[in-house]
Amino acid sequence: MRPVPDPGDSRVKAYRKQAREGALPPVLLWWVSGLDCHVILDGHARLAAAIAESVELPLLHLNRSVPRDDLDVRIDDAVGSYERELARFAALRAVHGPAVPDGATIAGPQLARRLHGLDTAAQLTWAWPLPGGQAQWRRVAREVTLRQDWPRS
């Protein structure tokens, strides 16, 4: 993760013109569940330009989705839950009469939300420890930072 460049940076100045013209390419974001926030993968200078020009910035958002192998199982689970709920309402209706609703008005929207969530909900991101522990993390961070010409504060 690197800092956003200053408004006076040469890349930002070039992007500011594109921002005024409404022609900025999107900034690439990735949702990291462990941080509970987005991380900018590409477009730090474009972000700074959009902020400097007070324009809305186009974004391209990446996140993990449900693996295709799991999707069929999850759909079957959602539909099965819906069918069980309809059967429960049918049993109640048989005992108590037509005053009990058929259950579709209650279970239908729940099914729709679950199916929509399977298609759109972000999944947890994964991380693995770097072999060597904290000392290795510090060494890598120091090497990466020293090789960059990022402004130091």
Rank of each mutant, 00 (worst) to 15 (best):
G97I: 01
R84E: 13
D77P: 10
A87E: 13
R113V: 05
R88P: 00
A104E: 10
G108Y: 06
P101D: 02
L86W: 01
A104T: 10
R114F: 15
P101A: 01
H116L: 14
T105R: 11
G117M: 08
T105D: 10
A112G: 07
V95N: 14
D102W: 03
A107T: 00
A78W: 15
P109S: 02
Y82D: 06
V79Q: 12
P98G: 03
E83L: 11
G108R: 07
I106A: 15
F89Y: 12
D77I: 15
Y82P: 05
A99N: 13
A94H: 11
H96V: 02
G117Y: 11
L111Q: 02
G103K: 03
S81C: 14
G108T: 03
A87P: 06
P98D: 08
R114C: 09
L92K: 01
A107M: 04
L92C: 04
A104P: 04
R93N: 02
P98W: 05
Y82V: 01
E83Q: 09
P101C: 00
R113L: 13
L92F: 03
A99Y: 13
G108D: 06
G108S: 03
P109W: 13
R84G: 02
D77S: 11
E83W: 14
G97F: 04
G108K: 06
R114S: 08
R88M: 14
E83V: 04
R88K: 10
R84V: 03
V100W: 02
Q110M: 10
A104S: 12
A112D: 10
G97A: 05
A78L: 07
L111P: 03
R93Y: 03
G103A: 01
R88Y: 07
H116Q: 14
A78D: 08
A87G: 07
P101Y: 01
H96T: 00
Q110T: 07
L111R: 02
L115V: 05
G103Q: 05
H116R: 13
G97Y: 04
V95I: 12
A112C: 08
A91Q: 08
R114E: 13
S81D: 11
A112P: 07
A90C: 04
E85M: 15
A87W: 12
T105I: 15
A78V: 06
L111M: 07
I106K: 11
E83T: 04
L115S: 01
V79S: 13
P98Y: 04
R93C: 01
T105N: 13
A107E: 01
A91F: 03
R88C: 06
G97C: 06
A94I: 05
P101H: 00
L115F: 12
G80T: 09
R84S: 09
L115H: 05
R84H: 08
S81Y: 09
A91N: 05
A78F: 08
P98I: 04
G97W: 07
G80I: 15
A90E: 15
I106Q: 12
R88E: 06
R114D: 12
L92N: 01
Q110E: 10
S81Q: 10
Y82E: 08
R113S: 09
Q110A: 15
G103R: 05
F89I: 00
F89N: 03
A94C: 07
